[in-house]
Design a binder for these strands. Structure first.
Length: 297
DNA sequence: CCTTGAACCTGGGCGC
DNA sequence: TGCGCCCAGGTTCAAG
């Protein structure tokens, strides 16, 4: 389910119950997700206090007072849900009374925190997600984070930055935008949406958005603005919910109602007076949705 | 370095 | 109802 806006939505949902909480008990229901769990996973977590819940790209980061950080990636189908064990109803936290175990619940964190006793359950049907425990000072050097690109929400994403990274690239723009080594956090949905907003062809070689002297073509300034906007709007909307519920309280994000092209094959392009139809092509084994009339740059 | 394609895994939807 | 196929928000690895 998750690109950056969905992961950020999860982070915001979990933070009120996780920050400041002590991990009283962990139920690890299988030996692996996409990868094996780290050695002594349960032992290293139990008794630890969660200082802060952060995010880098599509990774959730729970900083522990043990000096380690619990890193989790939701893959394609991972989700967290919160269940309160009695205690008071908390504004902003959905109360799921008697949580019964669901298929594909793989890890249950029993927390003792500011909102009372809470269970945070990780569910992941496809098991493309993974968890890791890293010492904070070693995180940047870990393969998950070394060489990862800039956040699409920050100032580091600029036309000049993209020009430097795109220069000489023959790969299609779509592939370059999905490349986590360049921008970390974009996925298939928001890449399609950003390219449509910028009126850029997904098949255009990325290097052709760079001038001879290495300066960014004007389209890159547009693209940077549109990436920022679409990500910010999606976060604001609580992310997109396609096939699954993604929010920790069981409610749905609603950005999917604002898709211009993603998953809209055959529907009318929403650009005023366009009249064309959204098409789907396959690039690098993944669907690209776009409007061939609007996206010719 | 680059690119493509397959692999990982389960489930939902659709056509027959 | 059932079966087979295609598709899915991601990443990694092998091969050309």
């Amino acid at each position: 389910m998750p690109e950056l806006p969905e992961v950020e939505t999860v982070r915001r949902g979990l933070a009120p119950v996780m920050e400041g909480a002590v991990i009283a008990r962990v139920e690890q229901r299988r030996a692996d997700l996409r990868f094996p769990f780290p050695e002594r996973f349960v032992e290293r977590l139990e008794g630890a206090r969660i200082a802060a819940l952060g995010r880098r790209a599509k990774y959730l980061l729970a900083d522990l007072d043990t000096g380690e950080t619990l890193v989790s990636h939701l893959g394609m189908s991972g989700s967290f849900r919160i269940e309160l064990d009695g205690g008071e109803e908390t504004p902003g936290v959905f109360h799921i009374p008697r949580g019964k175990a669901l298929a594909h619940d793989h890890v249950v964190f029993h927390l003792d925190g500011p909102k009372g006793r809470v269970r945070v359950t990780y569910n992941d049907p496809r098991r493309f997600g993974y968890m890791e425990l890293l010492r904070r000072e070693a995180m940047d050097a870990h393969p998950y984070f070394a060489g990862i690109g800039v956040e699409p929400t920050g100032n580091a994403l600029s036309p000049d930055y993209l020009a430097a990274r795109f220069r000489g690239k023959t790969a299609p723009l779509k592939a370059a935008l999905l490349d986590q080594r360049i921008i970390a956090g974009l996925g298939n949905i928001y890449v399609c949406e950003a390219m449509w907003r910028s009126r850029l062809s997904p098949e255009k070689p990325a290097g052709r958005l760079v001038m001879q002297d290495g300066a960014p073509a004007p389209a890159l300034a547009r693209l940077v603005g549109d990436i920022r906007d679409v990500i910010a709007e999606a976060i604001e909307a609580g992310g997109s919910s396609l096939r699954d519920h993604i929010r920790t309280d069981g409610s749905l994000g609603y950005f999917q109602h604002r898709f211009s092209v993603y998953d809209r094959e055959g529907e009318a392009c929403t650009s005023p007076r366009c009249g064309d139809t959204v098409r789907r092509i396959v690039q690098g084994g993944r669907s690209t949705f776009y409007c061939a009339s609007c996206q010719q740059d």
